Simulated scan of single mutants.
Amino acid sequence: MRVNSFRLGTKVMTLKPLLALKLNPSGFSPMHLALQKKHFQTMRGFVAIDNSLVSIKGRGRITPLHFVAQRDDPQFLSEFLFACPSYVEDMTIKCETAAHIAVKNHQFLAFKVLLGWLQKVHREDIMDWKDEDGNTVFHIAASIN
């Protein structure tokens, strides 16, 4: 018997909502783990119940939005941005935005989605934010061609 992971994710969230906020000893939330293990229906179930889970800060203050930008998954990146538009401002412990992470990891499609989103919500100024090394997204892009 196969269990629908979307239903399982929403059931867990309904019964124990605080469980979704807990980090394991490695510094990952259930949302981070669902993304790492590619349990996308579970992840969608979590977001359907509580869209703020997109911004849970795990190890290194990396959020699920940062994680998706690193993996070049434009579909989930778009879903996360629509679920919680303001979380595009979240920064890691190294002062990196999702745009910094996409560029550093050579994730062109993720960067295009982020840039389009920032233009749509009139927040292009985020592209000028500096990471801990003083680099903007454009500095990083120029340094890696």
Rank of each mutant, 00 (worst) to 15 (best):
Q70D: 11
V103G: 09
I49C: 11
K16N: 10
R44A: 05
L23H: 04
P74I: 10
H66V: 03
P25G: 03
N24S: 10
T92A: 02
M13E: 14
I144F: 12
L118G: 08
I101C: 07
L8N: 00
T92V: 08
M1K: 12
G9T: 07
V88N: 13
F76N: 15
R2P: 10
F46Y: 12
L33Y: 02
F28S: 08
K22L: 09
K22R: 11
F82E: 15
L81P: 01
I93L: 09
Q107L: 01
G9Q: 11
L81M: 02
L33M: 11
G116Y: 11
F28N: 10
L21C: 07
V137G: 03
E96R: 04
K112W: 05
I49A: 14
F108N: 13
A141G: 14
H39C: 07
T97Y: 05
A142M: 15
Q41I: 05
G134V: 13
Q41E: 05
T136F: 09
T10G: 04
A98L: 10
F82T: 13
S29D: 05
L35H: 02
K37S: 03
L21H: 13
R61C: 06
F6Y: 13
L109A: 06
R7Q: 14
K120F: 05
A48Q: 09
K112G: 07
T42P: 00
S26T: 10
Q107N: 12
F28D: 12
F80M: 14
P64G: 05
H66R: 11
D133C: 04
L19W: 11
V3A: 15
L81D: 02
A83F: 06
S78Y: 08
T92I: 07
F46N: 06
G58M: 00
V3N: 13
A98M: 07
L15R: 07
K11D: 07
N135F: 06
L118E: 01
L114K: 13
W117G: 06
L23Q: 07
N51R: 08
V12W: 08
P85V: 13
T136W: 01
G27T: 12
D72Y: 01
V54C: 09
M43N: 00
S78Q: 14
Y87P: 02
K37A: 06
C84Q: 14
F46Q: 05
T63Y: 05
S143L: 09
R123P: 02
V47S: 03
K130G: 03
V88A: 13
P64M: 06
N51C: 14
F40L: 12
K37C: 14
A48M: 05
D125L: 11
N145G: 13
K11W: 00
L23I: 12
L35Q: 04
R2E: 08
K37F: 05
H32D: 09
V137F: 02
P85T: 08
A98T: 09
L109Y: 06
G45Q: 00
C95F: 13
D125K: 04
Q36E: 06
A141Q: 14
L35I: 06
Y87H: 07
L35C: 05
L65G: 06
I62Y: 06
T97W: 01
R2S: 10
H39S: 01
T10P: 15
K16V: 11
F108L: 15
P85K: 15
K57R: 15
A98G: 08
R44G: 02
S26P: 00
P64C: 02
M127L: 15
P85I: 15
D50G: 03
D90E: 09
D131C: 08
R71Y: 01
W129V: 12
Q75M: 13
H100V: 15
P17S: 04
